[in-house]
Amino acid sequence: MAGTTVNGLRLTVLVGEGDRWRHRPMYTEIVHRAHAAGLAGASVLRGVEGFGTHSRIHTDRLLSLAEELPMMVVIVDAEERVRGFLPQLAELSLEGLVMLDPVEVVR
């Protein structure tokens, strides 16, 4: 693949669809904070099935549990910018999983 490549860091945050921060969906709060921090971009992906810390399986196939599907917020930027954003996540008292992965960005 031709193009310029740069090293970066991927921040992935897994939360539940029903997780809230001051009456706002947690994934929305994370995206808005990332935007305000000037990060390169953020995407939210909705899972169709999963389980987390409480070991209950949530799936979109069961209407009664469809409100608590897994949500994944993905942010990629330069390592120092992503690491500088981590205190913003700490303020949210997340119960979800936060992961950092080195990535090679092809532009």
Results as ranks from 00 to 15, higher is better:
residue 1 M to P: 07
residue 2 A to W: 05
residue 3 G to L: 09
residue 4 T to E: 06
residue 9 L to P: 12
residue 10 R to T: 08
residue 10 R to P: 08
residue 11 L to P: 14
residue 14 L to Q: 04
residue 15 V to L: 11
residue 15 V to F: 11
residue 17 E to I: 11
residue 18 G to E: 06
residue 18 G to Q: 15
residue 20 R to C: 07
residue 20 R to Y: 06
residue 24 R to H: 15
residue 25 P to E: 15
residue 26 M to V: 07
residue 27 Y to F: 14
residue 28 T to G: 12
residue 31 V to I: 10
residue 32 H to C: 02
residue 32 H to V: 07
residue 33 R to Q: 15
residue 35 H to Y: 07
residue 36 A to T: 05
residue 37 A to F: 08
residue 38 G to L: 00
residue 38 G to I: 00
residue 39 L to T: 15
residue 40 A to F: 08
residue 40 A to L: 13
residue 40 A to N: 13
residue 41 G to Y: 03
residue 41 G to A: 10
residue 42 A to S: 14
residue 45 L to H: 14
residue 46 R to P: 06
residue 47 G to L: 08
residue 48 V to R: 01
residue 48 V to M: 13
residue 48 V to A: 10
residue 48 V to W: 01
residue 50 G to E: 01
residue 51 F to R: 03
residue 51 F to L: 08
residue 52 G to W: 00
residue 52 G to E: 00
residue 53 T to R: 01
residue 56 R to A: 04
residue 56 R to E: 02
residue 57 I to P: 00
residue 57 I to C: 07
residue 58 H to C: 01
residue 59 T to E: 04
residue 59 T to R: 09
residue 61 R to Y: 13
residue 63 L to P: 07
residue 63 L to V: 09
residue 64 S to G: 03
residue 64 S to D: 07
residue 65 L to F: 12
residue 68 E to G: 05
residue 69 L to P: 14
residue 69 L to R: 01
residue 69 L to D: 04
residue 70 P to M: 05
residue 70 P to H: 01
residue 71 M to W: 12
residue 71 M to C: 10
residue 72 M to L: 11
residue 72 M to F: 08
residue 72 M to R: 14
residue 73 V to E: 12
residue 74 V to Y: 07
residue 75 I to G: 11
residue 77 D to A: 05
residue 78 A to F: 08
residue 79 E to Q: 11
residue 79 E to C: 05
residue 79 E to M: 01
residue 80 E to T: 08
residue 80 E to I: 03
residue 84 G to D: 13
residue 89 L to I: 09
residue 90 A to R: 14
residue 92 L to F: 14
residue 92 L to N: 13
residue 93 S to Q: 03
residue 94 L to P: 06
residue 95 E to C: 07
residue 96 G to H: 13
residue 97 L to M: 06
residue 98 V to G: 11
residue 100 L to T: 05
residue 101 D to L: 05
residue 102 P to A: 10
residue 103 V to I: 15
residue 104 E to Y: 00
residue 104 E to I: 03
residue 106 V to R: 08
residue 107 R to I: 08
residue 107 R to W: 06
